[in-house]
Design a protein around this nucleic acid. Sequence first.
DNA 1: GTCTATAAAGGGATAGAC
DNA 2: GTCTATCCCTTTATAGAC
Lengths: 199, 199
Amino acid sequence: MGGDRQNTKAEILETTIPLFANRGYAGVSMRQIAQAVGIKAASLYHHFPDKGTLYIEALAQAFSKYAAFMSESFALQTRPEQRLHHLIHHLCIIVHEDDNFSKLMQREIMDGNEKRLELLADQVFSDFFQDMNELCLLLAPDHDPHLMSVSILGQIIYHFQITPIRPFLPGYSPEHDKAEIIAQHIMNLLTNGLNNSSE
Amino acid sequence: MGGDRQNTKAEILETTIPLFANRGYAGVSMRQIAQAVGIKAASLYHHFPDKGTLYIEALAQAFSKYAAFMSESFALQTRPEQRLHHLIHHLCIIVHEDDNFSKLMQREIMDGNEKRLELLADQVFSDFFQDMNELCLLLAPDHDPHLMSVSILGQIIYHFQITPIRPFLPGYSPEHDKAEIIAQHIMNLLTNGLNNSSE
DNA sequence: GTCTATAAAGGGATAGAC
DNA sequence: GTCTATCCCTTTATAGAC
């Protein structure tokens, strides 16, 4: 910001990701993108043929960054319970620190056509989700691993998804926004169910 | 559709709800709304002063409809386990049959300003969420009821949220899209945790 | 590689006839 | 209560100077 510009294209993408994440494809104009970058709208067309391509490339950049993060969780070869613990805490921290990824993903799931969704699934989630399924099969052999994976991911993502409205819901305290607290809660609920004993 | 039009304003709202749910506020134009209703764009301004008001009224209609549905779950005075069972199955069926509500809610959480979010929380969720908190306190006195409620809601909503991309995720089978299957899975996971025995 | 200028289309909204 | 016609602004995208 304010420095010299060695790689304008990369800078455009970095600037654009949070704009699309927060306001959606139709909610952001090329002029607004240009202004955020610090150039004129016409200059964007030197780097990208049209708005749609700019959006797709911003998506790809945002998703590739997080696909790398996610696969980290399974590099460690420890006990399944520890791997689940590590996975949940890791994901909570990632989603908590930067919500662009989950916002873009949500919008894609709502707006994206079949081709884009299939690409997203194959290139970003496929390996990660496969690993989760295997972990679920180890931890809960009597449950359907696909449903299990979705339930775990759903809890994590939803807890951060509702951050903007959470303060207005009954029983809220600022503790409920902290990644560590949420991670502990989810881990506890998963291992013990409602019939808790250890917390 | 094609019949006579006794109450155009109500018909506009009904037609508009799925448009805004699927494409978002910025993604739908007044001309497109008018075309879907079967009138000209100028006629919309006889019923609503501007696009923003039309959107708010469509939101209010969609939300009030489902706020009524949701409070049904707690009318029955039975054992807590049965109330949870009923709540989960009921919510799954509602969200499964009509996804406009959850899509609009998602978009509001992402796009809405603080005032709109506070209204949404107070007028739609407050009572329902309060009841959920009390139920959670009965079922799992050692868990934080607010986090517990969010975890339960999150699982339910997320399972249907990802419907468009689910077929591309590993381990998918068409069974995983059925409301009853999902409800059973969630109920089972909540009561037993990962260490399942009964399924 | 960025700019100014501009074309072409679509957006929200209003006036006034019927 | 709906229509046609229109205003004015914003949008995407291109052309061509620098």
